[in-house]
C-alpha cells in the first residue's frame, strides 16, 4: 500500500484572493516579513499498487482527471510506502 500526498494550488499566473486576504490579515498581526501566501488543497490518497511508480501513475491520472482542474490549478504528488 502506498500513500500519495497531493497538493493542489492555483496556478502562479492566477490571483489567489483567499491567499491575499490571509496575507493581509498576517500583515495586520505584525508578520511584516511574510511576503506571499497561497492557499490550496491537500489531498491524501491510499493506493493499492505493486510499486511506487505504479502508485504515482495512478495518482497522477486521478489528479489530471478529477482532483485538479489544470485550466486553473497545478498539483504536486509525493508518494510514500505505508
Amino acid at each position: 500500500m502506498y500513500k500519495a500526498l497531493v497538493n493542489v494550488t492555483l496556478r502562479k499566473s492566477i490571483l489567489d484572493p483567499k491567499g491575499k486576504a490571509a496575507r493581509e490579515a498576517l500583515h495586520n498581526l505584525g508578520y511584516s516579513t511574510i511576503e506571499d501566501v497561497r492557499i490550496g488543497k491537500f489531498i491524501e490518497i491510499n493506493i493499492k499498487a505493486d510499486s511506487e511508480k505504479e502508485a504515482e501513475a495512478i495518482a497522477r491520472d486521478a489528479c489530471s482527471k478529477l482532483l485538479a482542474n489544470q485550466v486553473m490549478e497545478d498539483f504536486t504528488i509525493q508518494i510514500t510506502k505505508v
Binding site: 492555483l10 492566477i14 490571483l15 484572493p17 483567499k18 486576504a21 482542474n69 485550466v71 486553473m72
Partner: peptide, 17 residues
C-alpha cells in the same frame, strides 16, 4: 459545462470572496 470541457475556461472564487 466548464468542468466537463463542453465550454472552455474555468471558474474562480468571486474576487471579493
Amino acid at each position: 459545462l466548464l468542468e466537463s470541457g463542453l465550454l472552455p475556461g474555468a471558474m474562480l472564487h468571486n474576487q471579493q470572496l
